[in-house]
Amino acid sequence: MFSKSFRACDRKKLFQLACTGVVIGTLVTLTGCATTGVAEQKVEANPVDPYENFNRNMYGFNNSVDSYVAKPISDAYRWVTPQFLQTGVYNFFNNLKNVNVVINDVLQAKFDQGLQDTGRLALNTTLGLGGLVDVAKSVGWQQNDEDFEQTLAVWGVPQGSYLVLPLLGPSTARGIPGSMFDTAANPATYVGFPVQLVSMLNSRANAEGALKFIDEAALDPYVFTRESFLQWRDNLITDGKSEAKNDLLDLEGDLDVKNPGAASDSASVSKNDGSAKEVASTPVDNKTVQTFDQASQSFDEANTKIDRLKSKRHKKRK
């Protein structure tokens, strides 16, 4: 379900990671001298999301870019491209990704799965016409989802804070090095621009269903995205064995034990228990938060500008 949309984000990351670093760097520098004063809401900081103000603005910025740029192009792609071709394109990039899946199988010592994934890659690349047809699926070899962030988690690296990256979407402190490695290990990174453009189109087109669902179901799309992203990642990391039981225990604990202190953390904390503690143990530097807030403001302003541009264009048309 969500997996596709977030996989899509991952793939976008592959492509744009390099520029993002530069963008963030510049913004942080530029906004260093900008006036501050982000309205402080009296909201308890979520330990998993200490940069919520920054993240929310970034989320809004990404949404604007998506609705004015990515979505129109993706809709056009979906409209002109026959379904079988879209499936072929999806299979092709998915197959390339399996190089990285195999590497991470090995890094996580999942050797049996690594063998099967190697077979999958070989079968689809040969009989599957370079990956256009998912032959392995009909043999019963399911696509596995492994990446370097999962490997880092298996190695014991803590998740760190939740971050929404410009253009790239939801991630975590651990997810950034993860994506960099995945980008480097994906053959699609080393081909020309047109292929990468198709890859991005494919990612966005595949995320359509999930994004529509969020739009329909979420009362607070930012929180909805954050929670489902973190839970989804957690589920991948633990290969579906995430602590469903703990979840219930914690939620019930809040009810049974009338202890406001223990109940103050949101459900996400109970879900990501380990990581939350780690975050809490390293108090966030106030200056860092401020810088993030300032950067987020500039994104907010950019957002407003895009909206203005849009409305101007509308007026012109009229």
Partner: peptide, 25 residues
Amino acid sequence: IINIIANGVSDLALKRSEYTTILQR
């Protein structure tokens, strides 16, 4: 039934985060 977890995503946890956030903000 008090919770449904679909592919590892807990509905109750998701909703709780949303509802408490909106109430707070």
